[in-house]
Structure formats: structure tokens, C-alpha cells
């Protein structure tokens, strides 16, 4: 069973690595990071902070682009082209297939984040006094955020067309970062109905701000171990729930050979 999941994951990873879109986005990511090194001298004295802030944000954005680009069409493409039927005619369960695809895309995101993080740290080394190991917690939380986004896009890709899956995932990303604000705004300003709705939105969409520690890290504030642990549990719970739902939807799919 594990061998089958890892085979699916490695195949997905290999596919994304050989995909030109992935290279294109990766190049853009690196260009973005490099540009922070060029722009930061404009703000004398805060070069390190600008580089760190832009760099960390760019890592999440480019991770998001890769997840949405690749993940939204991943399952549907295989269904439309028919590659999936030869896989599922082997002793491979549909949930295993979804989990394998998820792991493969996660592996891609981890690889991409690792390369970008290495480049990011290299650039910080060039700005005196900016380098710190606290950035590692920001990298880790960025990875957790991308893992949840990956699960969201996989879930939508089993339900709707690739375009809608991409739109819904980007929407979930935006609302996920605003959900606390939406809830607070609803509680303060709205009617009882609006308060309830804002509460529903808050609990229905993963709160992605949990993973946003960029400001704290950049300004040297500590990120507690407790926060990291809770964020880990939060992301694992959301990922598991989304993958279970994706598996349930995919189990009912009709596949044509």
C-alpha cells in the first residue's frame, strides 16, 4: 500500500518537475527574490527587513501559484486523458490515488520552498545583521500553509473543472487570510444574521493567518513553540478533513476507459 502511494507521489513529483510551467514559475520566484536585493537599498537602514518581508511573501505567493496551476488540473487532466484508468485498474484504491497525488504535489512544494529558502538565506547573509535562524519557523509555517492550500486545490479538483478549482482555491486563499477580519467586522458592525454568517465563514474556511508570522519574524518578535505546534495540528486537521472529503467525492466519480 505504502509503495503504491509513494509510486504515485514520485510520479506526480517527476511530472511537475518536468513541467515547463513549474520551471517558469520557479524562475519568476527567484527573480522576485533577487529583485528585493536590488530594491532594498532604496530604504536606507531597513534593507534586511524589506528583503525578508518581500522574500517570505514571494515564497508563499509562488508556492500558491504552483499549487493552483498544477493541482487544479492534476486529477481532471488524468481523467480526461484516460491515464487514470490504467492506474485504477491496478490494485490501487481511489483514496490512495488522491493521497498519492497530494503527497507528490507536496513534495514539489517542499522542494521549491527549500530552494527558495536557501536562496533567501543566501541573500540575507549579504545584508549585514539580517540573518537569523528565526526565519526557519517562517519557512516551516509557509510550508504548512501551502500544504493546506494543496489539500484545498485537490479537493476542488475532484469536484469542479480546473478553472473553477483554481478560482475557488484563490478565493479560499484570500478569504482564509481575511477570515479573522471578516469575523471581527461581523461581530462589531453587523446584525445577528451577519454575525452568524461571519462566524460560519470563519469556521468554514481555514484561517491562513495562523501561518503568517512574517511580520513577527522580520521585526524580531519571537514565534513561540506553542504557536508552531498549534499551527501544525491545525494544518494537519484541515488537510486530513479536505483529503477525506476529496476521497469521498472521487469515490463516486465515473471514469471512462
Amino acid at each position: 500500500m505504502n509503495g503504491q502511494i509513494s509510486a504515485l507521489a514520485l510520479s506526480t513529483f517527476r511530472e511537475t518537475v518536468r513541467d515547463r510551467i513549474f520551471y517558469l514559475v520557479a524562475v519568476f520566484g527567484f527573480v522576485m527574490l533577487a529583485s528585493t536585493a536590488v530594491l532594498s537599498p532604496l530604504n536606507v537602514g531597513a534593507q534586511g527587513k524589506i528583503m525578508a518581508d518581500v522574500g517570505l511573501a514571494a515564497m508563499v505567493i509562488f508556492g500558491l501559484v504552483v499549487a493552483v496551476f498544477v493541482g487544479s488540473a492534476m486529477v481532471r487532466k488524468e481523467m480526461d486523458k484516460g491515464t487514470i484508468v490504467t492506474i485504477l485498474s491496478k490494485p490501487v484504491g481511489r483514496r490512495q490515488y488522491i493521497f498519492g497525488k497530494f503527497l507528490g504535489l507536496n513534495l514539489t512544494l517542499v522542494s521549491m520552498l527549500t530552494v527558495m529558502a536557501a536562496l533567501f538565506l543566501l541573500m540575507l547573509l549579504m545584508a549585514p545583521g539580517s540573518f537569523s535562524f528565526r526565519f526557519l519557523s517562517a519557512f516551516y509555517l509557509s510550508f504548512l500553509e501551502l500544504m493546506v492550500i494543496n489539500a484545498i486545490v485537490i479537493f476542488f479538483s475532484t469536484c469542479v473543472s480546473p478553472i473553477l478549482a483554481a478560482v475557488f482555491t484563490l478565493g479560499a486563499f484570500a478569504v482564509g487570510h481575511l477570515s479573522e477580519s471578516i469575523r471581527d467586522f461581523g461581530q462589531m458592525q453587523g446584525t445577528a444574521f451577519q454575525q452568524q454568517m461571519s462566524e460560519i465563514v470563519y469556521y468554514l474556511i481555514p484561517n491562513l493567518e495562523v501561518f503568517n508570522v512574517r511580520a513577527a519574524v522580520v521585526h524580531g518578535d519571537p514565534v513561540t513553540m506553542n504557536h508552531i505546534l498549534m499551527a501544525t495540528l491545525y494544518s494537519v486537521a484541515w488537510t486530513a478533513l479536505l483529503l477525506l472529503l476529496a476521497g469521498a467525492v472521487f469515490n463516486k466519480k465515473e471514469l471512462r476507459g
Binding site: 503504491q4 484516460g82 484508468v85 490494485p91 476507459g257
Partner: peptide, 25 residues
């Protein structure tokens, strides 16, 4: 099973494809 219009991962070589299916089996 051989489908009517077999279509496989284009990014793989023939050898890699068979290694992939061997792992699935």
C-alpha cells in the same frame, strides 16, 4: 487491463512508465 485508447504519462520514458506500474503492482 488495456483501454481502447491507451494514454500514459507523456513525461515518462517507456522504462520509467513500466517501473511506475511495477510499483503500483
Amino acid at each position: 487491463y488495456l483501454p481502447e485508447r491507451p494514454y500514459f504519462f507523456e513525461h515518462l520514458t517507456g522504462q520509467e512508465l513500466l517501473e511506475f506500474y511495477a510499483a503500483l503492482l
